[in-house]
Design a binder for these strands. Structure first.
Lengths: 239, 239
DNA sequence: GTGAATTGTTTACACCGTTAACTCTAATGA
DNA sequence: TCATTAGAGTTAACGGTGTAAACAATTCAC
């Protein structure tokens, strides 16, 4: 009647499919949050979508793909949260921006322990996360927010570059540099970036997984101290 | 015939039971290593022990208890490995001892990723790990090896205590202090211990979970640098 | 020897991932 | 327009899982 064009119909079926996929993600997410990682199951998601288990196979090739899609979805969400945090500070002050982003990373992780666990503690590297194929994997999307600010800090000078850079690293760090929008960042600075990144990420992980519970009820100040250190290492002029 | 004493029989049945428990742990461990965490299952362990699934319930109340026992077992093994590493350095040099222990922690984690994941990334604190009931939980057994060396370092002086200690921490740190064999360690020093511990643990975790793979093929030197920092923070005279 | 633990078993139920075969509906194309 | 085809969904089935109940057998204690 109104529109019998094939292209429009094609677009519509595509849209419906997209909505079903989004629905599955919404449900999987809720199961993860409310009942833990073990609850995000093919049958449970299918059930809540109003269809039988094999029906879900029209959308995901199996349980593995389902949770992989969820992981990717969560990386995007985290990246968006970090980007939003970054925008809460003036663009010309990368130091405060990085601090805000670091805080948001911790906040997000603490507020979403199940999600963070899924992202952080994938038992074994997915094999396609080998060094080199960095830019394509989902985790890059949120790491890049932090890395971008570090580049910004480097541009303003002040990053304390180490004198003795392990020679074996040149090749890999080179690889990372290529993904930094062609910035001529020296390898020594990239090394500092990686070290800083590892420190922030590690601090959050240790706290989220409760390995500080034996001593601290509020590790917040400890984390602030870590951020101070990292910013000092990156030569934040406002630190 | 030889011995019909009830006590001896009781001891024997007890020994047999202990052996069955040890057997279960051995099998669970192998399954964890060779086929991942998902493979350590009640039925699989029972099967390999030569009995039916419900039979295993005479030894473990359920799947949860089984893997909990495995976790405890692994904590003990890790603690033993760290203690052995500690003994590889002279007793009067706590700095090198701590370095050796830190290296062993990393080595163990990298050599046993599945085990480390199980220990580190328990999705949610087991609720009995709340601050206070520290000394009883299995993780204390291996954390104490590191903490003990830190106390030793403090005793030689040199630990840089922070001037501004968050007042809210006094109570919990006090709790930790009590488990340090009655040493009169100042709370500020204990704060440094916790911070150092978090840093080491976090560095290992980030590496084991592959979050440095995007940049580094060999994060070893980075870890050495972290140990340097920690030892400096603890005022190692030999650093 | 008798009673009671201890250690197993078989059976059963509900859930899981996944495959195969089938139906129905909607888009496609001559 | 009408036959064809691709897509979405179904039911049935297989092997795997955790766990509970009821039962049998062995071994310990007195």
């Amino acid at each position: 009647m109104t529109d019998t064009s094939g292209a429009a119909a094609g677009r519509r079926r595509h849209r419906v499919r997209e909505e079903a996929l989004a629905d599955a993600m919404r449900i999987a997410r809720r199961l993860l949050v409310e009942e833990g990682p073990a609850a995000v199951t093919v049958r449970a998601v299918a059930r809540e979508m109003g269809l039988t288990a094999p029906g879900l196979y029209r959308y995901y090739a199996g349980h593995r793909e389902l949770v992989q899609a969820l992981v990717s979805h969560l990386y995007d969400e985290l990246a968006a949260a970090l980007a939003a945090a970054r925008e809460r500070q003036p663009a010309d002050r990368p130091g405060p921006r990085l601090r805000e982003v670091a805080r948001e990373l911790r906040r997000w992780a603490l507020a979403h322990p199940n999600e963070f666990t899924l992202l952080f503690a994938k038992p074994v590297a997915d094999a396609d996360t080998a060094p080199g194929a960095a830019a394509h994997d989902p985790s890059w999307r949120f790491g890049t927010v932090v890395l971008g600010l570090m580049v910004e800090l480097w541009r303003r000078g002040g990053v304390r570059v180490p004198a003795d850079l392990d020679p074996g690293w040149a090749a890999q760090l080179e690889e990372v540099r290529e993904h930094l929008s062609g910035e001529p960042v020296p390898l020594e600075a990239i090394y500092v970036f990686v070290a800083s990144w590892a420190r922030l990420y590690g601090a959050v992980a240790v706290e989220v997984f409760g390995h500080l519970d034996f001593a601290l009820t509020d590790p917040g100040p400890l984390f602030e101290h870590t951020v101070d250190d990292v910013l000092a290492m990156l030569g934040d002029p406002a630190a």
